[in-house]
Design a binder for these strands. Structure first.
Lengths: 338, 338
DNA sequence: TTGTAAGCGTTATCAT
DNA sequence: ATGATAACGCTTACAA
């Protein structure tokens, strides 16, 4: 079932059929209807592949995610998918399964599929990406991360430093002074360093000395949140922490679980603050106080930016980091000290 | 950068370049290397779209999901993605955003993109799908659901009836007799009816009379799990339930939250059993006892089945429902009564 | 307003 | 073992 069959059935040329598909106003209403009728009758479905080849564009945006099982993925994807649709674009997903080289593969995979633009998520873009990035003739935008590579890349994310700074301020305002941190591993993702930096700056701002023994590290997942908390607890006799802030909700979940397993309650015996505001963070017990990242919004911005670049034909005129506003969501995991 | 450029650079014909790409052994080792070298030098990336058009296949499987924000999506996708890759296939995702007509759109979207097969998830396939299914010339496989349409469709899922039956048995073996159920809405997904049926059969088997007042319904999401539990609790003086089984982990989460908001503890005052075994179910407090669905496995089976059909050229010889084994995961949300 | 025809970048069939 | 050449199904100048 091709455009030719429709053309024959409608008694017009293939070009006309193509026109009613793409620029219906260029064709006389009467013939247009005739063609549409033929399409209906023959149940014609245009071949998106042929269309893409001929028109030299696939109307597709590529999305590279570090791992599909990351709990923030869903919301981010939703934002990107919705925004894409509003531009008549589709999304082609590439899951790097948390492997660095797979992330690199993602670029050529998407390149081969002729995507118009690429959204890269979450992992830091380092210099080792440069060769790939250089020869790629497709605009790339970063989301929830940034680049330390030579290739300048536009990024959309929240101000991680400021966000954790705000968390510390909030905790101090609730009477906390001995505040611990479960940070992301420093070599892992850029947010690991940034969020730790926000913690340091927060303490500094309130004249609280920074004590490295109050900081533990994890890989952003539940299990390492749990074990990081356990290590903190092992020193708790010295530390006397009253609150812990974390670099990720999922680690906060682990921390909370660990606290309970040690016979401590949240927030009565220890306050915990997360980061992300995943769907589940409001479902658990206690409802988690956390920093909300506007995932859907961030995704939408990335798409919009790409479409802008594509509109003015491949000139990423200016690049930099665009910070979207985060929001501290107060729920039940922080105790107000007298 | 096309196959012709490479050909020119290597001093061969385009056909030869194509051969080293697809059937390297048909070309003399020496020329093969020469071509490969040229590809390297020119940083050639084959155009997947052109390839698809010419070869009349896209090496792609389509996946239709009801909603990307469903918490089970991630694991299912992972299973499907992995299995697909092992067959050299890619996955094109279509998110129906929980809208029935969007689900239908999914078929034509994927059809236009020339996917070799379609995996349809979770929503019941009813007769209204028949017209679309009939004219679709692509094999379809169902996952986590089944079909009541005329078109026979292969399905992979767990035995929902048996699973909830097992839950009831388990609860009875722990001394529970007054067992409530938070079921899925009956018009929603097939599993809604099936799981409720399992509950009924479980009760019947143990000689416990079925009392409709012990059953409430929700749409599988947290909030409705919460309100369903609240409705049950409103009757709790009469009901005297000691345990509740649910049709979904997410609703169980809502139920647990509701119980705590009513000053009741889980499992001390009420036992709760989930369904799905989402990642988070082991992270929360109390760790949830639930029925594990082998999502990744189910996905892998679906892919394998499709590839089988495609191998023997479009003949879905036999179709039916293939049940994958579920597993009751005992954790902490059920109390053993003396 | 509509038709003709030349691609788009591959693959695949024939020859050689 | 390699090279011409005709598809694949559509879009898009250009012509009519």
């Amino acid at each position: 079932m091709t455009i030719r069959d429709v053309a024959k059935s409608a008694g017009v040329s293939p070009a006309t059929v193509s026109r009613v598909l793409n620029k219906p106003d260029l064709v006389e209403p009467e013939t247009r209807e005739r063609v549409r009728f033929a399409m209906e009758k023959l149940n014609f479905q245009p071949n998106a592949i042929a269309r893409g080849l001929s028109a030299q564009r696939s109307d597709t945006l590529g999305l590279i995610v570090p791992g599909i099982t990351d709990l923030f993925f869903n919301e981010l994807y939703r934002g990107i998918d919705r925004a894409s649709q509003s531009y008549g674009m589709k999304v082609l997903l590439f899951n790097a399964e948390h492997a660095r080289d797979r992330a690199l593969d993602g670029f050529s995979f998407l390149g081969q599929h002729q995507v118009s633009g690429i959204i890269f998520t979450s992992k830091l873009v380092t210099e080792e990406f440069d060769p790939v990035l250089q020869r790629l003739r497709i605009p790339v935008v970063l989301v929830l991360t940034q680049s330390t590579a030579k290739t300048p890349l536009q990024a959309f994310r929240v101000d991680d430093i400021k966000a954790v700074f705000d968390v510390v301020s909030y905790l101090v305002s609730r009477g906390h002074h001995r505040i611990g941190m479960i940070a992301g591993k420093q070599d892992h993702e850029i947010t690991g360093q940034l969020r730790l930096r926000g913690y340091e700056m927060g303490l500094q701002h309130f004249g609280i000395p920074y004590d490295p023994r109050r900081v533990e590290y994890g890989d952003y997942r539940f299990d390492e949140g749990y074990s990081a908390m356990q290590r903190l607890l092992d020193r708790q006799r010295d530390l006397q922490l009253t609150a812990v802030c974390t670099a990720a909700d999922e680690m906060a979940l682990g921390a909370i679980r660990c606290l309970y397993d040690n016979g401590l309650r949240v927030p009565e015996d220890m306050s915990v603050v997360g980061f992300d505001d995943l769907q589940i963070s409001r479902m658990i017990l206690p409802r988690m106080t956390t920093v909300a990242q506007p995932f859907a919004d961030i995704g939408a911005h990335a798409v919009r930016w790409l479409m802008g670049v594509l509109g003015q034909d491949q000139t990423p005129s200016e690049t930099g980091i665009y910070f979207l506003p985060h929001r501290l969501v107060e729920r039940e995991s922080v105790l107000t000290l007298v």
